[in-house]
């Protein structure tokens, strides 16, 4: 039931013609929504196909094929990688590294954020340190982590973790500190404990910030894993890409990049679903579509 229907029902006014109109407008809205959805899909396909087509045509005519390759050749290289070079085996390593780093970094950032942000004095003491660590070009830590954790999967997970951790930490702290004071006060007077406050007021108030951080850090985790593999490894898509680059095999290079792109898109989609669920109360997703 929509708000309008409920309002009409609550007032109990019989109005045949108005109800018919209401139904008609709703049906129109739904149809418009369907059309818009299809339009978006069609538009995306057109942009994608157009881009690939332009690339295919420009390659060898406007730009040297050696540098930019061409989509058809990349597709071929992708197929070769898949059947001859065990792309899926390498992907599995890279995904494991990125995912593990992402989960560890994000949970640590969230937990520490909640631990640090609630007490103003603690926050003010640690703030410069957090900012300083955040300011380190984190990718420069990769060689150090390989020194610490060896050539295996652990060092790549560690790089992915620091790529994610600080961004989630800083956003979580910002989100917690943006929780409106009146909501906290009202909750306290209504009898909320500190645990209630954290879970039922502060966390939901901070979700827009947290979700933003979780979205931004998906590709960051991937960067961490790949750079770790670049520096030293004998498996993973990063290893594959650096090998293709060594062989001056541009199509193979692009094939590696595209397989990573697919993984990042999938992970991002997952976070988007999570975000939509956690933010279902947000007015932007509600009935305010009519705003010009």
């Amino acid at each position: 039931m929509t708000a309008q229907e409920a309002a009409a029902g609550a007032m109990g006014v019989p109005r045949g013609r108005g109800d018919t109109l209401l139904r008609a407008v709703e049906e129109q809205e739904r149809a418009r929504e369907r059309r818009a959805r299809w339009g978006i899909v069609a538009g995306r396909v057109a942009v994608g196909v157009g881009f690939l087509l332009a690339w295919e045509l420009a390659s060898g005519r406007l730009v040297d094929q050696f540098f930019v390759s061409r989509p058809s050749a990349i597709l071929g290289a992708l197929w070769t990688m898949l059947v001859e070079e065990n792309l899926l085996y390498h992907l599995r390593f890279t995904i494991t590294e990125a995912l593990a780093g992402y989960i560890i970094g994000a949970s640590a950032g969230l937990l520490l954020g909640f631990a640090l942000a609630r007490v103003d004095l603690v926050f003010r003491i640690v703030e410069p340190f957090v900012v300083a660590f955040y300011g380190i070009p984190r990718i420069a830590l990769a060689p150090l982590f390989i020194l610490w954790f060896g050539l295996g999967i652990t060092s790549k997970i560690a790089v992915a973790t620091v790529m994610v951790f600080f961004i989630v930490l800083i956003n979580t702290i910002a989100g917690i500190r943006a929780a409106p004071l009146p909501l906290l006060q009202v909750a306290r007077v209504m009898g909320a404990s500190e645990w209630d406050l954290q879970r039922k007021v502060i966390f939901p108030a901070a979700t827009p910030f947290i979700i933003a951080a979780l979205q931004i850090t998906v590709p960051q985790a991937m960067i961490g894993a790949i750079v770790g593999e670049f520096i030293s490894s004998n498996r993973g898509v990063g290893h594959l890409i650096s090998r293709e680059a060594g062989l001056l095999d541009t199509p193979g290079l692009f094939a590696g990049i595209f397989s990573l792109l697919a993984v990042v898109l999938l992970m991002n989609q997952g976070i988007t679903f999570l975000g939509n669920y956690l933010m279902r109360w947000s007015p932007r997703r509600g009935i305010t579509r009519d705003v010009v």
């Binding site: 009146p182 909501l183 006060q185 009202v186 909750a187 306290r188 007077v189 209504m190 009898g191 909320a192 404990s193 209630d196 039922k200 007021v201 939901p204 108030a205 979700t207 109360w281 947000s282 007015p283």
Partner: peptide
């Protein structure tokens, strides 16, 4: 904090992430 009193301000201060029912229930939940 005096949790024995009720406190209503100029802004309604409903929790935007809770439905009407969940908002009305929240004090009992606490």
């Amino acid at each position: 904090v005096n949790t024995d009193a009720g406190y209503i301000t100029q802004d309604d201060n409903l929790f935007p992430w809770r439905t009407l029912q969940e908002n009305v229930e929240v004090a009992l939940e606490f």
